[in-house]
Structures are given as structure tokens and as C-alpha cells.
């Protein structure tokens, strides 16, 4: 098991964002998380890499227990790459600069090595010709592919995607999903929050349905999509599949 959470809970004041969430992910598994807005999907991902601290419960990533100690948070972050809905590229750096920065300051790679890694990854996401562009000069789909390459440059064992295509125009969604499919085929462990049910059907091993901070239902992709049991899952799916 590469990800294991036991009864994690998270509150924001009165609001319970996560309510005793437990689940496990095997190495190489692709898990898609679905659920209505505000159900705690983003909070869950952010807790996994310590961007948000859980109030109670336990998270173990690749054998490392995530606790208050800064070192464990740091170690875990080195194992996990994260891709955000609104890309969050660094606007003051070129594409290459975006990919190289953390390699240099976190992984302590030298200029040459980090550049070589970056160029390989840019080639992989089909943006080698954009290496000297700045984020503002790229389309949304291109920016998101750069963001994926930037995360991969750190050689993570796990990739978290928080609605990676929700901010994109429809014609750009495909190019990003394509990159993600390749990653999945290569055996990357992935946790993907998305409303792209087609992508889930094709790529996901498992689907988790969340509502109001709880996991309502989880299981194999076909089972959840074709014969969901919980009425809330049924209601949600009938809405998104429409």
C-alpha cells in the first residue's frame, strides 16, 4: 500500500470538510474521486501532501507517517506531485525555469541535469518548442501540461490531480487527459479528482464517491459506474452522466 489513511477528519471552524475518511491505494493504481462541490475532495488531496493539516486520523504515504513534524511533511512532499485546477505555474519564470526551479533548490541537481530532465519531460508532454515561453504566452491546456511536467520533474511516486481540466476550454481537455493516460499506463500511482467520467471509465481502477466530507461509496470503476448502490451516488452519477 502506498497511500493509507485512517479516519482522517478536518474542520474549518464549524464546517466539517473531512469526516473520518479511510481508504487505501495500491502502488500503480489510478483512483478517481468524484463528488459534488464542497464534498471535501480538494481538502482530501491537500491533506495527503500536508498542505492542509488533519485534525485527527492517520496518513501513511509510502511507509512515512505524516505528522506535525516538518521533516515528515517534507519527505512526503518529495514523493508526491500535485497538479491544480488553475495550473499555478510561476508567471515570472519561463517554462524551463518552472521545471528547473524545484529540481535545483529541492533536489540539488545542477543546471545541466535539471535542464536535461526538463527537456525530456517537455518532449513527453509535447511542448519542447515552448521551453522558452512564459506561462502567460501559453494556452490553458499547454499550461496544464507544463504543470504536469513540472511535478514529474521531481520524480514523484504519486501524482495528485485536483480537477486538472475544469478550468480548460472543451477543446483543450483532450490534450491534458491524453498526457494523464500515458502516465497511468506507465504505472504511476494517481489520485484524480475529476468530473470527466469518460476518463474515469477508461483509466481508473477504482472510484471513490464523496459527499459532505465522507466517502459514501467506493469500488471498482465498472461497479460504481454501472451499478452504484447508494442513492446519493446514483443521483450524482445520473446528473454528471446526462
Amino acid at each position: 500500500m502506498i497511500i493509507q489513511t485512517k479516519n482522517i477528519s478536518k474542520r474549518f471552524g464549524e464546517l466539517i470538510a473531512l469526516d473520518r475518511v479511510s481508504f487505501e491505494v495500491e502502488k500503480g493504481e489510478v483512483v478517481v474521486i468524484i463528488g459534488p462541490s464542497g464534498s471535501g475532495k480538494s481538502s482530501l488531496l491537500r491533506c495527503l501532501n500536508g498542505l492542509e493539516r488533519v485534525d485527527s486520523g492517520e496518513i501513511i504515504i509510502d511507509g512515512i507517517k505524516l505528522d506535525k513534524d516538518k521533516k515528515s511533511i517534507h519527505k512526503v512532499r518529495e514523493e508526491i506531485g500535485m497538479v491544480f485546477q488553475d495550473f499555478n505555474l510561476f508567471p515570472h519564470l519561463s517554462v524551463l525555469g518552472n521545471l528547473c526551479l524545484a529540481q535545483k533548490v529541492v533536489r540539488k541537481r545542477d543546471e545541466q541535469t535539471s535542464e536535461k530532465t526538463s527537456l525530456e519531460l517537455l518532449k513527453k508532454v509535447g511542448l519542447l518548442d515552448k521551453k522558452n515561453s512564459f506561462p502567460s504566452q501559453l494556452s490553458g491546456g499547454q499550461q496544464q501540461r507544463v504543470a504536469i511536467a513540472r511535478a514529474l520533474a521531481m520524480n514523484p511516486k504519486i501524482m495528485l490531480f485536483d480537477e486538472p481540466t475544469s478550468a480548460l476550454d472543451p477543446e483543450m481537455i483532450g490534450e491534458v487527459l491524453e498526457v494523464m493516460k500515458v502516465l497511468a499506463q506507465e504505472g504511476m500511482t494517481m489520485l484524480v479528482v475529476t468530473h470527466e467520467i469518460g476518463f474515469a471509465r477508461e483509466v481508473a481502477d477504482k472510484i471513490i464517491f464523496m459527499d459532505q466530507g465522507k466517502i459514501i461509496e467506493e469500488g471498482q470503476t465498472e461497479v460504481i459506474l454501472n451499478s452504484p448502490q447508494n442513492p446519493r451516488t446514483i443521483a450524482f452519477l445520473s446528473k454528471v452522466l446526462k
Binding site: G81, N88, F90, L101, A102, V106, A147, R150, A151, M154
Partner: peptide
Amino acid sequence: QYQAALSLGM
């Protein structure tokens, strides 16, 4: 921007 940088291990 903070979240992106921190999630890269910075």
C-alpha cells in the same frame, strides 16, 4: 503560488 511551490517540496 504557495501551494504549488510547497507541493514541489520547497
